[in-house]
Amino acid sequence: MNQAYNHNLSRALLLVLSAWLLSGCVTSRIENIREGNTGLEEGEGIVIMAKSYHLGNETEAKFISCVGKSIGRGSSGLRVIPNNEFVDALFPWFEPRTAPAETKGLPTLMSRPGVAQKIKDQGVRYVVWLDGDTDKVAGGGSMSCAAGPGGGGCFGFAWWQNDSNYEASVWDLSGLEDAGTVRTDVSGTSFLPAIVVPIPLLARTQNKACNALADQLRLFIVSDESA
């Protein structure tokens, strides 16, 4: 019994150690700037949108989807309205070309026929506009691989640094105002040493940025620090 317990414990420790070893070094920073009061009433929700590519934004679709899923997950998860449903319901006012770029465009938008009612029907209180992307900022090393009749293998060492910079602007559609901004900057270096078999030690900066931004956004929207 005791032996089996020890065996399981050592396996768990080995797993944790492997997971730790297989992840690269990551540093992250998160900050928020509050402009107004926030909070969610019963039945209210949020929609996560990417800033328009007409404005040069290149936020990855998988990042937007990741933030939406993370904010909606768990017992404290918020109600997240799928952005394609929202955009289709309000066509053509949230298309990349027509979506308001600043909150001062909101009164004009709300005065358009049917827009305010449709937003109310959807239960959307906040629109979260995501901006930013993940870039490879540096890299180096070399690796060579060869294969022959007797087998193959790689030898060498490579590394690269990724930077994930994202900003989320929160617009309150009930007050037609900017509620604030949450920013995250995650930087990480991945390594790929290879002695016959390459062993990737990856720094998942985008994933880390997604989770950090989602957690902070949830707190930002639900809790009103000014109260």
Binding site: E60, A61, S65, P92, E95, R97
Partner: peptide
């Protein structure tokens, strides 16, 4: 449209649909 989120074919289809929606939005506006 990004090929990372959709397959290559689907990403091209989506880009074409988005261009048509863009034209529709512009015409309405």
């Amino acid at each position: 449209s990004q090929s990372g989120s959709f397959g290559g074919d689907d990403a091209l289809k989506r880009a074409a649909v988005l261009a048509m929606r863009d034209a529709a939005a512009l015409i309405i506006l």
